[in-house]
Simulated assay, not measured.
Amino acid sequence: MSKDLTNSSLDRKNILNNNIAIQGVYEELGFYGIKFDGKYRFTKQQIAQYFDVDVRTIERILENNKTELEISGYELYTGSKLKAYKEQVFDFVRNAKDKKDVHDINVVNILQLNESELDSLSKTPQLTIFTYKAFLNIGMLLIGSEKAQKLRTAILDIVIDVLNKKLGGKTKYINQREEEFLPSVIREYNYRKEFTNSLDFYIVENKFKYSQLTDKIYKSIFKENAKEYRKILNLNSKESVRSTMYSEVLDLISAYENGFANYLKNKSENLNKKLSLSETHLIFSEFEQIMEAFVSPLQEKARSLMASRDLVFRDALHEKLKDYVNEVSSEDFYKFLGKKSMEFEKRLEENKEVFKRLKDR
Rank of each mutant, 00 (worst) to 15 (best):
K3A: 04
S9F: 03
Q23P: 00
Y26M: 15
E27H: 15
E28W: 11
D37Q: 15
G38L: 12
K39W: 00
Y40L: 05
F42G: 08
I47L: 07
I47K: 04
F51R: 02
D54N: 13
R60H: 06
N64W: 01
E70S: 07
I71H: 09
Y77P: 01
T78A: 10
S80V: 14
L82R: 10
Y85M: 05
Y85D: 02
E87V: 08
V93T: 03
A96S: 09
D101E: 14
I110G: 02
L113H: 15
Q126E: 15
I129M: 11
F135T: 02
L141E: 04
L156A: 07
L163I: 01
G168W: 06
K170W: 07
Y173W: 13
E178S: 12
E180S: 09
L182G: 00
I186F: 02
E194C: 05
L199M: 11
I217V: 15
I217N: 03
S220L: 09
S220W: 11
A226G: 12
K227Q: 13
Y229P: 03
R230N: 02
N234S: 13
N234W: 00
N234F: 01
V241R: 06
Y246M: 05
Y246P: 00
D251E: 14
N258G: 14
A261I: 01
S268R: 09
L277N: 03
L282E: 15
S285H: 10
E286T: 05
I290K: 15
L298A: 12
K301L: 12
S304C: 02
L311E: 10
E319Q: 13
L321I: 04
D323N: 14
D323M: 11
V325Y: 03
N326A: 09
D332S: 10
K335S: 05
K335H: 02
F336Y: 12
F336C: 01
E345V: 10
E345C: 00
E345D: 10
K346P: 00
R347C: 04
E349H: 14
E353L: 08
F355N: 00
R357M: 12
D360P: 00
